[in-house]
Design a protein around this nucleic acid. Structure first.
Lengths: 244, 244
DNA sequence: GAGCAATCGAACCGCTTGGTTCGAATTATT
DNA sequence: AATAATTCGAACCAAGCGGTTCGATTGCTC
């Protein structure tokens, strides 16, 4: 690290002290203004892509002067990275909660699959992903970070869930890591590639997603479900028919 | 159509006649020069993306004067589209031949899956796909066309193959269209999204692809294989063990 | 070797880019 | 009301953009 460079963390600390002392955010520290800028940036970046988006567009869209933007963000790349970081957070937040209150295995998988498929193929998320993908030749670490802290983190949570199901004797899986990827891709079955290349004006319909996911879960369970899962399910079936 | 505009097709025809008559390509008709331009364009577009690539870069890289480029292509977009059109052709050409000389079902599916996974996740193809994805907000029809004439066409061939296997009583599938997507995505199992966001410097190893594909085919056949497939496979197994 | 046409290469156009600067206006604390 | 500092807005910069033009050059055909 460059020894002559000012220590960023101390600087921020000083700014924070200033804020407390004077009851007013220091330059480039007001979170409201910051959001305002990022909100404008989001609209511009996402529908123009990184390269085509101009700082002047963002200025206009955010209703903030150019000078101010450069107080909050050193340059275009830094602004973009901050935006994507936030975007990633909101996209993947709570996406995997379904896995925590598990009841029936099949039902849980279907519920999870639907949430996943819907989120990942929604217009907003597809556009955001396109923007990241388009920029990730120029900013290689951005794409890697996006994947690592987004999809990958969810993948890990899914693995934990699958391992628990294995423990309970409901699944038999050799390579859980691979199986988790297979499950995710079964739930998306063509949707992701189709959407990312040719988003069909509107998102896939509820019915379409339902059909794909329930079929995907069936395939997954036929491959990895154990006899005791089958027994439990037929037991439920009988109970259901008895009720009828 | 604009009646005053010269008829493009007749113009090309005249040019062709000129070529034959004079033994020399007409302006903007020399296929060698055309390739030379596209080759340069490929290098620039693919590693800079559509927006960031400049016509001057391409001029330099192709070793062709700017004026000449504009004789062959009306503008940047047209050049880019021509490039992608060619790229799509070379990527997907022969990719589905494996399906034509079918012998053993599982073996054929594995062979096909490997070809698919390798192609789609190779460095060159990933970069090309990124470029298309990055540009497809600005050129929406390009992405749609790419998908339609590339992945979609292969998908259709796979459906034909699956239908034949159903006819032979080896598979039992309700929704063949969906099943074909499931198969493709089972063979890629996470690879595509992983590569497109965070290409890990080198392509997935042969072993990795082998593992993923053979596992994917197993899942697929457990879900959709019939008893007669199982019978045939166990029959082969017995023959194999007898030989040992 | 004469004639012709495609290619070259450089200059040029108007425009936009990311980024910078600075005095004026605004805002909140004291 | 005085003070201090953030924000504004507009002008400004050099650079690069896609695209065009045109005379010089090259290389082929006859």
């Amino acid at each position: 690290m460059d020894e002559t460079a000012p220590d960023v963390e101390n600087e921020q600390c000083d700014d924070l002290l200033d804020t407390i002392r004077r009851g007013r955010p220091a330059a480039g520290q007001d979170p409201v203004k910051r959001s305002q800028i990022i909100d404008g940036a989001r609209r511009v970046f996402i529908d123009k892509g990184f390269e085509a988006a101009s700082m002047n567009d963002i200025t206009r869209e955010a209703g903030v002067s150019k000078g101010t933007i450069y107080v909050y963000f050193a340059n275009k790349e830094e602004l973009f990275e901050a935006l994507i970081e936030e975007e990633r957070g909101t996209i993947f937040k709570n996406m995997y909660d379904v896995l925590d209150h598990a009841d029936d295995l099949r039902k849980t998988l279907v519920k999870f699959g639907k949430v996943l498929a819907f989120k990942i193929t929604s217009a907003k998320v597809i556009q955001a992903q396109r923007t990241v993908i388009g920029a990730c030749d120029r900013l290689p670490e951005l794409g890697a970070r996006f994947f690592e802290r987004g999809p990958k983190r969810g993948h890990d949570k899914l693995m934990v869930f699958l391992n628990a199901a294995i423990e309970r004797g409901m699944l038999r899986i050799d390579d859980v890591d691979l199986a988790a990827y297979q499950f995710t891709d079964l739930c998306l079955a063509g949707l992701f590639r189709q959407c990312i290349f040719a988003y069909r004006t509107k998102a896939p319909s509820q019915e379409e997603v339902d059909h794909i996911v329930s079929s995907g879960v069936s395939v997954f369970l036929k491959a990895y479900g154990t006899e005791s899962l089958a027994a439990e399910e037929s037991h439920q079936m009988i109970a259901l028919e008895a009720k009828r």
